[in-house]
């Protein structure tokens, strides 16, 4: 069974390597952000795999927090690349914001 773990961790590492190549090559900045997002998702999986494999349950919390931080990081980097300012109030040239629901009373 431990052989299976090692192989699956190596497969996930191979995915990360392929995504890193795309991050280095990517013609547009969005390709790079996409590849970094994939690397982040794979990191979560590797941490979860190592946690269960080594019987160290506390590491799962790290994976849990990383899954949330990764999403926030991607959105923040996207905004930074788009606006050049994280605190910018409106995105330039963005199409109409998604129709939001009527606010509740």
């Amino acid at each position: 069974m431990s052989m299976v773990y090692v192989i699956s961790v190596l497969l996930v590492f191979a995915t990360m390597a392929l995504a890193l190549i795309r991050a280095l090559k990517g013609p547009t900045i969005y390709d790079r952000i996409l590849a970094v997002n994939v690397v982040g998702t794979k990191t979560v999986l590797v941490v979860a795999l190592i946690s269960v494999f080594s019987g160290n349950g506390d590491l799962v919390d790290v994976a849990l927090v990383y899954a949330l931080i990764n999403f926030l990081a991607v959105v923040a980097v996207l905004k930074l690349a788009r606006c050049g300012d994280l605190a910018a109030a409106n995105v330039p040239n963005g199409s109409a914001q998604q129709a939001s629901s009527t606010a509740h009373e």
């Binding site: 191979a14 995915t15 995504a19």
Partner: peptide, 20 residues
């Protein structure tokens, strides 16, 4: 579970390959 782990890894590599 071994099959699922390996299958997940293979799907991941295929996705990375598609990324390239």
């Amino acid at each position: 579970s071994g099959g699922l782990l390996l299958g997940g890894g293979v799907i991941g590599v295929l996705g990375g390959l598609g990324l390239l």
